[in-house]
């Protein structure tokens, strides 16, 4: 039986559907459980090149690794989310990321003859030393330092605000975070 035909048959024979037993009466509104688009499919990459994206993934794992079973940037799919966010961001923000990632790729190849994602952690961490500078209100002038400061904040936030972390908090009976009043469009 073709799938379409099966669906038509099922639609025509509602009495066979067990869901009907819990359906509301025709006069009631149904409350259905739904999920977000993010939970149903794999995201399509829009912004970073394959090299930039794999570098960002490795960088994210260094900045926010999974610790003691708690989700890190990898489980939170932070790099994939940032690809989506950067595709929509202003041009100067995009350039900051592109230049920063390209510099990391170039430095890794020149200094170690390897891709950043293939570096042992000691060598990869050594490329992040601009992050050891003391914090100043103004962003660093040096482009890689400015990029690392931005990407550190973004990865931490994208991880902390992810569904993976929220679910781990609930499962670990930790305090629920990230719940807030949301304002709809007011017309």
């Amino acid at each position: 039986m073709k799938r379409r035909h099966l669906l038509q048959t099922l639609a025509a024979t509602p009495a066979l559907l067990p869901a009907q037993q819990t359906s509301p009466s025709p006069d009631e509104n149904a409350v259905l459980a739904v999920d977000s688009p993010e939970s149903a499919g794999l995201p399509v990459r829009r912004f970073f090149t394959p090299d930039q994206f794999s570098t960002l993934q490795s960088l994210a794992d260094l900045i926010a690794p999974s610790i003691d079973g708690r989700p890190g940037a990898k489980q939170a799919e932070a790099a994939s989310f940032l690809d989506f966010l950067l595709a929509k961001s202003p041009r100067d923000r995009q350039a900051l990321y592109q230049r920063g990632l390209d510099t990391l790729i170039r430095t890794s190849r020149t200094r170690h003859q390897k891709e950043f994602s293939e570096l042992p952690s000691a060598e990869a961490n050594a490329l992040l030393t601009p992050l050891t500078a003391k914090w100043t209100y103004a962003a660093p002038k040096e482009p890689v330092a400015a990029f690392l400061r931005a990407v550190k904040a973004d990865i931490i936030r994208a991880t902390a605000n992810s569904r993976a972390v929220a679910e781990a908090n609930v499962a670990g009976r930790r305090r629920a975070t990230g719940l807030n009043p949301y304002w709809q469009v007011i017309e």
Binding site: S36, F81, L85, K88, S89, P90, R93, D154, R157, A158, N161, S162, R163, V165, A166, T177, G178, L179, N180, P181, Y182, W183, Q184, I186
Partner: peptide, 24 residues
Amino acid sequence: VDFNRHRSLKAVYDLPFRGFGEPG
């Protein structure tokens, strides 16, 4: 503003931009 109709509790991960807000 109708506080009952216009406001509801949401999780940050359920927002389209994970709490970063729409860029720009």
